[in-house]
Amino acid sequence: MGTFMAIVDKEIRAVARERTILLAIVIQLIIASLSSVILFGLMSFYDPATIGQNTAVPVKVGVVGDGDSQLINYLQRSRVTTLLYDSADAAQADFVKGSVDAVIYIPPVAAGVSEMKLFLPQSDSKSTVVLMVLQTPLKKYENYLRGLNGVEVRYQDTRGRSSTTYEFLYSFIVPMLMLFPAFIAGSIMIDTLSEEFENKTLDTLLSTPVSMNTMIGAKLAAAELIAVLQCILWSILLSFNRIYIQNVLLVLVLAAIIAAFVAAGSALIALYFKDRERSQFLYSVLLITVASLSYMFNPSPITLMTRLASGDPGVGVVNVLIYLLPLAILMIALFTGTRKLAALKA
């Protein structure tokens, strides 16, 4: 046990000394930030429902034509200021001055087709915003016109919040943060093992009373520990940002199982190839393959993570513990085959 802990200690120290782990954490932070910037900045931009919820973008629209139109009602309900104009020229004058953001021509309502005209500023970003804000009232008006034509649209009264951010958060950000440590654990395994092979330090190590399995076990434990610590760190940091992971213990256990699986798998690869170049390449490709393959299970590890973290009532302990089985098989394969695998010439 003493030698085992000594190697674990050495591995963790190596990672800590290199400060590389800091770099790894910064990487994850960057990925998460970029993704959330993309999401919170842009999705709200593309998702008018979110705009209505979060920000009150002040939009003023000049109206020419039917001043009693139901559309004006819808516009006002979406917090769009409407200004009625008698003539198109008057509207244009204000539009050019910039006192209205858009001009809309509403023909009188009639059964059949209604052809409106919308005038937007030729600026690169302003018209996009205006168009986004106008989308909801225009859709409502469209449904109103459909009603006049005898076309009934159902589910119009459904309420609820726009789920885009929620889904993105729990189906991308959280699994990414919880699985990236596993990816790093695999990389660490490959690096540390292939380094032993390439620098020929393995023979020296094995000449001491350390067995091959102790050595690999210790390295695995170190990689696993680093991964779990990162996952705990992420769940704490996320809660600082008021993003709460439900079933946090189960999520961490699942992340730990996946990290152990990936680390053991990468140990197998590194033991076979014995050089970093091929091991890392094959590891990356295999990781993509296995991740894709796992999608065929339902719930797959990644979706299970999503469902646990978002508090889905339909998943629980059993779904997590099932994954101990493939992990156990892989571990047995690893620890019974190390010597043979290491002796193979790839």
Binding site: S114, M116, K117, F119, L120, S127, L138, R146, L148, N149
Partner: peptide, 9 residues
């Protein structure tokens, strides 16, 4: 039934 012709000015 609703078609909106957009123009950039």
């Amino acid at each position: 039934p609703l078609r909106i012709e957009t123009h950039y000015i």
